[in-house]
Computed example of a mutant assay.
Amino acid sequence: MVSVLSQEQFEEVARLGVRVEEALRLECVGGRIREKPMPDGDHAEIIAWLTRRCVQADAGWWLHVGQGLRVEQGRKGNARPDGCLASSDAFVGHGEWADAEGVLLAVEVTSRDHDTDRRDREDKPKAYAGTGIPVYLLIDRDTCEVKVHSQPDGGRYEMLLTVPFGKTVTLPDPVGIDLDTEPLKGWVH
């Protein structure tokens, strides 16, 4: 399902409590409403693993799961990253959709659905770069790779580093975390 709605129309749909199947969540990126499947157990374990790494690196950080962000230039889209790294109190007092100010890292873990290619590999990097999120981390379970996008410039990231599962990757500043990706091999079913 792909529909074109304005930012205001999308937020009105959300305010009215319009729901899709319980196994899906809605996002509006690039002017298109998209369904995002709920994570599976391996997906959840990857996010838990990454959360532990982030908190170990800085006790003031948290990998916020499920927080909706206003994204793209002019904040004309709504995305719900699998995780977004920010201070532990970054979203206190915000509603379901918050500005991405203070977000250091957006994280997506590929899902087993028909739209993951366009959503996670094309639309999300553009949206997050357009918002100025410094680092976008894609944990790609289809290719068994970690893709680190950095240096946002308008609507794209200028740098892309791709590392196969099993190697160590350093997330660039302002994150600056070394990730040993060996454990990811066990969560690719």
Rank of each mutant, 00 (worst) to 15 (best):
G93Q: 10
R70N: 14
H114M: 12
D40S: 12
G93T: 13
L105P: 02
I46Y: 04
H94G: 08
K76W: 02
D99F: 08
C84L: 06
D42V: 08
G41T: 14
Q73I: 15
F91Y: 06
D40C: 13
F91A: 03
V71A: 09
R52V: 14
L69Y: 13
G77A: 11
L63K: 13
A57M: 03
S88F: 08
A59L: 09
R75E: 13
V92A: 10
A90L: 02
L69F: 08
A79G: 14
S88E: 09
F91M: 07
V92H: 08
W62P: 02
D82N: 13
A98C: 13
N78Y: 15
T110C: 11
A98F: 08
A98H: 14
W97Y: 15
L63G: 05
N78P: 01
L63Y: 02
A48M: 12
Q73C: 00
G41D: 08
Q56I: 01
Q73F: 03
G95A: 08
S111W: 03
E108W: 08
P39F: 06
V107Q: 07
A100W: 00
A57N: 00
P39G: 11
F91H: 04
G60V: 01
R75S: 13
T51H: 10
C84M: 10
Q67W: 03
S87K: 13
D89L: 05
V65C: 10
D113R: 03
W61V: 00
C54N: 05
A106E: 01
G68I: 02
Q73N: 12
K76A: 12
R52G: 08
M38H: 03
R52D: 10
L105S: 01
I47Y: 05
E45T: 15
I47G: 09
E96C: 06
K76F: 02
G102C: 05
P37L: 03
S111G: 02
K36A: 11
D58I: 06
W97L: 10
D42H: 10
D58N: 15
C54S: 09
W61P: 00
V103K: 02
A44R: 10
H64F: 03
G41L: 14
G60I: 00
G41A: 15
L105K: 04
D42N: 15
D113M: 08
V103C: 00
E101Y: 12
L104V: 00
